[in-house]
Design a protein around this nucleic acid. Structure first.
Lengths: 128, 128, 128, 128
DNA sequence: GTGGTCTAGACCACA
DNA sequence: GTGGTCTAGACCACA
């Protein structure tokens, strides 16, 4: 199971992130078929309604399309994908900086800390 | 009002962050009295119970002490304060990097983006 | 009603003890569902918030887990249960001995008194 | 300071216990003078009203007498002292056994644990 | 159905 | 004045 039942983040949002990650990473390429609600629900041992809710959001953001006859497809519009990814990233960065700022960390602190962490992880052979 | 009524983040957690920020910044120095539940409730136009809930969590983390009938004090143990701040910061960084990683951003991407944002903000005269 | 309304011990702490006793005794076995906040509130004729408060503490001590929309479970980690019980017991014993010590009772006095009481209770058919 | 400001036990009760302990132990012998409210308040760095409250309770239990002209005395009636001590002890034992019972410890468990603890303490040279 | 949050407000013990 | 407890009850997100 790739997610955390105990997290305070709702499961449907965790599923959304997972699908997005697969689209952004190219695991689900533009124009490709996406597994059905049932398949994903089974893969994650989750109620199909929950998966449905995640798909609904992804449709609203145009990342996926529902073809009434043949399931769901990842959008073929690469710009839509790129922009969604950028928007999510901007949001993450913004709230991250805001949090750190509240704790009194200067931009320099943050940058330095990130550099250190990345170095460290790379040395131990992982990714950042 | 230093907080966002419309945020999906519970008010009591926002209050916690606010108090922490004041402790970390030295506005509430180690060993000093912090305003009473009633005072903060009034300051924020919030129910006293909500403030109490925030304080309970801060007590659990040892950042503040309760002297039952004479209010609450910031801990005098500076290490507790430093460590709490560091722990919060580490948590923020860690989950930030994890989010960005899921979206397929390499560490270099993240660093570059942060640098760019900070530059930009600094040029327009703000802080990062 | 398994608890004492008139006791000076807060109701939520009495509820905590009650739930713990049920976990320790195996009435709520590891991994099993425990009744919902609403059910227990009704069982005890108490406000749901009061039950919630008790549950919060039990969660903090890892004895129970919250599955947000499907209720709460007793931890499956038997060691957590055993240790919590032992820790509570040690605390009781320690503070008991300390109290008795302050009153000037020697360990021998205490042991003798306990033996006597147990004998007495057992003779009258009860448990100690 | 012989007591714990942070304890949830009210200070006046902690003071009561302290005075009682001194009476039971003979540090304040029957018929002897007791330090004045002011002296004790100063010794403990506490508001005189709080000490007053403790004394009030001790008077109610006849352990101490107020001689309007010459301060307070420990009662000369040794039976009163002995009985108060016994009553306190009985209360402690009773609530201790009740607590342990709720946690599912049999009388034998409790006795065995106490014996073990006492042995241990005595071996390390302390009192039980 | 589940748990979580929040309000309005009463009442208490304590110092 | 301080913090702590408790109720009654509304409203929310989630599954």
């Amino acid at each position: 199971m790739p997610w955390d039942f105990n997290s305070s983040i709702p499961i449907y949002l965790q599923i959304e992130s997972m699908i997005k990650a697969r689209i952004f990473s190219g695991e689900y390429p533009p124009g490709s078929h996406i597994p059905s609600v049932r398949e994903i629900a089974q893969e994650l041992a989750v109620n199909p309604n929950t998966v449905q809710k995640a798909f609904k959001d992804l449709e609203d953001s145009k990342l996926i399309l529902t073809m009434r006859t043949s399931g769901r497809l990842v959008t073929e519009d690469i710009r839509t994908i790129t922009q969604a990814r950028q928007k999510d990233a901007d949001g993450s960065v913004k709230s991250f900086l805001s949090e750190m700022g509240k704790m009194g960390f200067s931009p320099e602190d943050v940058l330095a800390a990130l550099k250190a962490i990345c170095e460290e992880r790379r040395e131990s052979g992982g990714v950042c």
